[in-house]
Amino acid sequence: MTDKQRQNLINRVAVAFGWIAAILFFFPIFWMVLTSFKTENQAIAIPPLLFFEPTLENYTEIQERTNYSKFALNSIITAFGGTGLALLIAIPSAYSMAFNTGRWTKDILMWMLSTKMLPAVGVLMPIYLISQKLGMLDSKLALVIIYAMMNLPIVMLILFNYFREIPKEILEASRMDGTSTFNEIRQVVMPLAWGGIASTALLSIILCWNEAFWSIVLTTTEASTLTAFVASFQAPEGLFWAKVSAVSTLACAPIVIFGWLAQKQLVQGLTFGAVK
């Protein structure tokens, strides 16, 4: 066998194993989606059914019989609200840091990142009691604020990296024309950094959407998000597998798609910019 043939064989074997891994990892998701189209009896059938007549009844039933839409709306409000608030605070700050980098800029960014290391459970009691005192237990506003602060350091860091890639000459040119700072941000920086801002937002939305500590601890019924709603199905014996699967499929689909779209930014965001 020549070297080339050998290399070819190695490649084929590697790819085959790669596919096996891909199928194994994806299987639980596939099975969940499949189960959501079964009847409850089919869902727990032994042996498990791979082929069956699909039904949409779970999807109609969770819309009619549960408050699914309310929780989905809560998830949308808290994820987008938290992200929006974080961006609102971060864009001017990151912009200013990127173009007026000072002696302390790096230390400030590192310190911001370090606040992210504070484990949620470490501040559980104060946050819980403060929310209680302010009448914000089970309120979406509390989650919006917490999510915004939780993601602010990551959002700052990624935006900082994006803004720094904008060539300074462009800004200087616009300054020569006497553009005000506000207009500079709006007319020059924003259009250039738009892609970066959008993908940062996407990452933040994903993190908020899947957040499952504060949403479980701080909400009961009114402000519960989908993560908390799904957690409430933990009832013993986990009845209603088909319906749980339908809820889960709906809850995960948008975020999985977001994730596929934002792969590259995710790598940057999740590694705090250390891997690009």
Binding site: F25, F26, I29, A43, A212, T227, G238, V244, C252, V256
Partner: peptide, 21 residues
């Protein structure tokens, strides 16, 4: 296919494993 599990909600993943698998 390989990266999808990372985007599944932790509560969903827990339920899928606990019940269906």
């Amino acid at each position: 296919m390989l990266i999808s599990p990372f985007f599944i909600m932790p509560t969903v993943s827990a339920l899928v494993w606990k019940n269906m698998l």
